[in-house]
């Protein structure tokens, strides 16, 4: 099994291993996420109605409303967040969710992680370790 380790910055601490769900497009909260369903409801989005519960949610950046923090709320929240670009929207999400979160990686995780890969998020020690599904 091929393993790839990438160093990054801890936004919210924790250590968790779970399957990756990769969003090729930025994620937007507020009305475009449904915390009771546990999926994005943004029309024409690659993850439209795809459940994120228990996954390591990998995405390029957050966009739009401060309601992005809803991604971390409710019983169906992801196991961890990994994102390429950071913004105050991600800070709000960490504050409201206390879900492990990492950003500012030495190599863009979007280029490495595919949906279905296993990802160890070790925010406590500042790295992620990807086990490729193939």
């Amino acid at each position: 099994m091929r393993k790839i380790r990438i160093k990054g910055r801890c936004e919210y601490p924790g250590r968790v291993e779970a399957e990756a769900l990769v969003s090729t497009a930025p994620l937007q909260g507020f009305t475009n996420v449904d915390i009771d369903l546990g999926c994005t409801t943004e029309r024409d989005h690659p993850l439209f109605m795809v459940p994120y519960e228990g996954k390591v949610l990998v995405f390029p950046s957050a966009r739009g409303s401060g309601g992005f923090q809803k991604y971390g709320r409710g019983p169906h929240h992801p196991a961890a967040f990994i994102h390429t670009e950071s913004s105050p929207l991600n800070v709000l999400c960490c504050l409201h969710s206390h879900v492990p979160s990492m950003t500012d990686f030495e190599r863009d995780p979007m280029e490495v992680i595919e949906t279905g890969d296993m990802v160890l998020v070790n925010a406590d020690e500042g790295y992620i370790e990807i086990t490729k599904k193939d």
Binding site: Q28, T31, N32, D34, L37, T41, E42, F48, M49, G64
Partner: peptide, 13 residues
């Protein structure tokens, strides 16, 4: 226009 359809995800919006 961007947000309001998200309130109605059933049947693809």
């Amino acid at each position: 226009a961007n947000y309001v359809t998200g309130c109605y995800p059933e049947a693809g919006g």
